[in-house]
């Protein structure tokens, strides 16, 4: 795990968090910025999963959630909702990026593709409740990369992954680490 944490100007990333003129000048550690970003992502994702998809598609059964949501006139899957948000962020800024990856992805595009991704995803799967932080160079740029466990928060998560024909793991249970949210911040220089 990375021990020495460098600093990032909060104003670069946290315009929405800035509270008055003084806050814009504050500096935050990469890890702190990343943790805060993840808190927002994780909360929104959990709310969507529990209060929209699980409630309407699993408990009440009034609408389906489907990977082909347009053709099937269905709810967007929680993983897709998360990815669409990440893509929208990527269109607005390159100050940070994020992804939802797994050692057992339904879509193999979401399998680890860098050495650090493999190391980080294995660490959070083997150490429930812990995050993983590191640095890596990609495309000539050094990134601070953080890994956060993505836990099965509702029946909809395990049901879909266990039943999908392309899922490499079909025995997930509630509370299991199913993958990880990966946040990257390019480091100064």
């Amino acid at each position: 795990m990375m021990k020495k944490l460098t600093k990032i100007k909060a104003a670069m990333l946290c315009g929405a968090m800035a509270m008055g003129g003084t806050a814009a000048k504050a500096e935050m550690e990469y890890q702190q910025v990343s943790d805060l970003l993840h808190l927002v992502m994780s909360s929104d994702r959990t709310v969507y999963t529990r209060m929209i998809v699980n409630r309407l598609a699993v408990k009440e059964g009034v609408i389906k959630a489907s990977e082909h949501f347009e053709d099937d006139k269905a709810l967007v899957l929680p993983a897709q909702m998360f990815r669409f948000g990440a893509e929208m962020v990527a269109e607005e800024t390159d100050a940070f990026s994020y992804s939802l990856l797994s050692l057992w992805p339904i879509n193999k595009q979401n399998a680890p593709s860098t050495d650090l991704e493999k190391e980080g995803l294995e660490y959070i799967a083997d150490n429930p409740g812990e995050n993983f932080y590191g640095e890596e160079e990609l495309g000539g740029v050094t990134y601070f990369t953080a890994f956060y466990p993505d836990v099965a928060v509702a029946e909809a998560c395990t049901q879909c992954h266990n039943e999908h024909k392309d899922s490499p793991k079909t025995d997930f249970e509630g509370g299991d680490v199913m993958g990880g949210v990966v946040i990257r911040i390019p480091m100064d220089g």
């Binding site: 893509e87 990527a90 990026s97 990257r184 390019p186």
Partner: peptide
């Protein structure tokens, strides 16, 4: 947008 992520 699939390819702009640094992991690609």
């Amino acid at each position: 947008k699939k390819f702009t992520n640094p992991r690609m």
